[in-house]
Computed example of a mutant assay.
Amino acid sequence: MTDAVRLVRSSRLSSVAEYAYASAVSLRADRLIFAAGACPLDAEGNTVAPGDFAGQARQVMDNLETALAEAGAELTDVLKTTVYVASANQADLVSAWEVVRDRFGKHDAPSTLLGVAALGYDDQLVEVEAVAAV
């Protein structure tokens, strides 16, 4: 993690959340990076793991890491994520979230997890967008 990113926790808020409640970016940061929603597509543009929330989340995180690297950032530079899951079933959301959470490891940047009606590609179940600072 660069010195630009500081994760903020509060002893006055529940510790149940598996992420920091806020993040702060230093004015010393050279760049903010806004990553488009990473999708579960392979290099040929095919949707990976149809019907598998966790499998798609793994591909999404691979693609997010690649996009961030191309922009000169890493997961530890992420300030916030939004995780979209095409399901109204909480267990499906949790299945995708656990993959995202585990990939970030100790860098538990603030995140929003949403169940949505549909996503943009055929058979797509998961998408993750991110903001990073370097």
Score class of each variant (00 low, 15 high):
53 F>C: 01
53 F>Y: 12
53 F>H: 10
53 F>W: 03
53 F>K: 02
54 A>H: 02
54 A>C: 03
55 G>I: 07
55 G>Q: 09
55 G>W: 11
56 Q>L: 08
56 Q>A: 07
58 R>W: 00
58 R>E: 14
59 Q>A: 13
59 Q>M: 13
59 Q>S: 10
60 V>D: 01
60 V>M: 02
60 V>G: 02
61 M>K: 07
62 D>T: 14
62 D>Q: 10
62 D>W: 03
62 D>A: 12
63 N>C: 03
63 N>D: 02
65 E>T: 10
66 T>P: 00
66 T>W: 08
66 T>G: 06
67 A>H: 04
68 L>G: 05
69 A>S: 12
69 A>E: 11
69 A>C: 02
69 A>I: 00
69 A>Y: 01
70 E>R: 14
70 E>C: 05
70 E>M: 06
71 A>P: 00
71 A>W: 01
72 G>D: 06
73 A>H: 09
73 A>D: 02
75 L>T: 04
75 L>R: 14
76 T>S: 15
76 T>W: 01
76 T>H: 11
77 D>L: 10
77 D>N: 15
77 D>F: 11
78 V>E: 01
78 V>I: 04
78 V>D: 05
78 V>K: 02
78 V>P: 02
79 L>V: 15
79 L>R: 07
80 K>F: 12
80 K>R: 14
80 K>Q: 14
82 T>Q: 09
82 T>F: 04
84 Y>I: 03
86 A>H: 03
86 A>R: 05
86 A>C: 06
87 S>D: 05
87 S>K: 08
88 A>H: 10
92 D>Y: 07
94 V>D: 14
94 V>A: 09
96 A>G: 10
97 W>F: 15
98 E>A: 11
98 E>F: 08
98 E>M: 12
98 E>G: 04
99 V>H: 08
99 V>I: 14
100 V>P: 02
100 V>W: 05
101 R>H: 12
101 R>G: 07
102 D>E: 13
103 R>H: 06
103 R>F: 04
103 R>P: 07
104 F>P: 12
104 F>L: 09
104 F>H: 12
105 G>Y: 06
106 K>P: 11
106 K>S: 15
110 P>W: 09
111 S>K: 14
112 T>S: 11
112 T>C: 08
112 T>Y: 10
113 L>S: 06
114 L>W: 07
115 G>H: 06
117 A>L: 09
118 A>S: 13
118 A>K: 13
118 A>G: 00
